[in-house]
Amino acid sequence: MAHIKINGMLKNYPIGRGKFTALKGIDLEFAKGEFTGIVGPSGSGKTTLLNIIGSLDVQSEGSVEVMGKDIKSLSAKQSSRLRSEHIGFIFQTYNLLPVYTVYENVEFPLILLKMSAAERKKAVLDALDWVGLTDKIKSRPSQLSGGECQRVAIARAIVKKPDLVLADEPTANLDAENSHHILKTMKKINEDLGTTFIFSTHDAKVISYLKRKITLLDGKVDKDEIVNGG
């Protein structure tokens, strides 16, 4: 059974009296454990597609099923629960909570899951170990480099061992060395934990790591190809 199933999906945004079509005729399936990139120029609909898969937004037409759940039929509470339990997000601008330490940022999703303090501690230290930041647990985001911030964001996304991680341009603000470090980390998590990763990117460095590459052009799937990344 497919992990994510998208059929005939269309997404419109109202603009004045008219509407702008961000995505149209999208038919895609993603299996568990994929390491997939959605590539394309700016405005091609990459982020919109990730937002809909992540239940942060809903499609205008068609159907989107994520882990057997129809995104459009979910209530706000149900979609919050889906995100909380099954989906991790990584953002281009890291989106770390500025007043929290590294440890607290990574711990945050587990607090929402109401895990016990002992379980949280173990999971946070494991996640920070994965990304190599155990020595920075007391630092605040303002004391970290861009690469370190993104590694914290990755740790935060994987700490609850989600089924799916959605990463929106995760290397856009990083230099080449940090980008490769981040991508290797994510690849390792994908291989070791079987977590599904879906990226939006137009960064050539990311593309070289992908197993599958979906190219969007003007809101439509232009190409969907298996590549030998990594």
Partner: peptide
């Protein structure tokens, strides 16, 4: 707002 968006993305309800 970004902080709120991040919290929502992580599954916190409005």
């Amino acid at each position: 707002r970004k902080e709120m968006g991040t919290m929502m993305a992580m599954g916190m309800t409005r």
